[in-house]
Amino acid sequence: MEPQVWLDERGRRCPLPIIALNRAAMEQPAGTVIALISDDPAAKFDVPAWCRIKNATFLGESPVDDGGDGLVFQIMVDSAN
């Protein structure tokens, strides 16, 4: 599934990437796939936990394409958001 929204939060630390993710999720309709790029060591734990708390679907994580630091997290906005 190709993400419709990309958030590049590299260089920003907790809680900023999660705040950006939450803001984007609130603006998007259910079913939207959001990709968050983050090099915050807490993101690996906090993105899936945020999805669980906020009833979003955590789709997975993958390395960034350019081989740099950080991970790409993909989530799907749920109708209950």
Binding site: C14, F45, D46, A49
Partner: peptide
Amino acid sequence: VLAAMGAYTGG
């Protein structure tokens, strides 16, 4: 500990 529980670790 928080990481192993799958808990939210921020704040």
